[in-house]
């Protein structure tokens, strides 16, 4: 597992049914592109987050494929419609097979 990986998300705690909310996500990750060389001139192997998904109550909201050109600490901001109370689940997939997950509850006012 890459070191210092920490997912952060910002989701409103409450929303009106059918409201469009803004979700912000960021994961701290060095996103090694696989193009760089170390001091000895040896290629540093690629190590990036290659996929990010968000699900709401089991239904997929967004599914992103990430390529090596994406810079360090990838940040995604997107909108989602909230039809009912439930849970947002966010998942990041690392090149090395690690999976980082976090979830946020949202209630309807």
């Amino acid at each position: 597992m890459a070191s210092g990986v920490k997912p952060r998300v910002k989701v409103p705690k409450t929303a009106a049914a059918g409201e469009t909310i803004t979700i912000k996500t960021l994961i701290s990750h060095k996103m090694e592109s696989g193009q760089r060389k170390d001091k000895e001139g040896v290629l540093i192997p690629r190590s990036i987050i290659n996929r990010f998904t968000a699900d709401f109550n089991g239904q997929n909201v967004i599914d992103i494929t990430i390529e090596p050109a994406v810079s360090t600490n990838p940040y995604f901001e997107f909108e989602a419609i909230v039809p009912e109370a439930g849970e947002f689940k966010f998942t990041w997939y690392d090149d090395d097979g690690s999976v980082y997950e976090t979830s946020k509850q949202i209630t309807i006012t």
């Binding site: 210092g4 920490k6 952060r8 960021l26 701290s28 600490n73």
Partner: peptide, 9 residues
């Protein structure tokens, strides 16, 4: 605020 990435670490 990107500074908080480092605060979290």
């Amino acid at each position: 605020n990107p500074g908080f990435v480092f605060v979290d670490q």
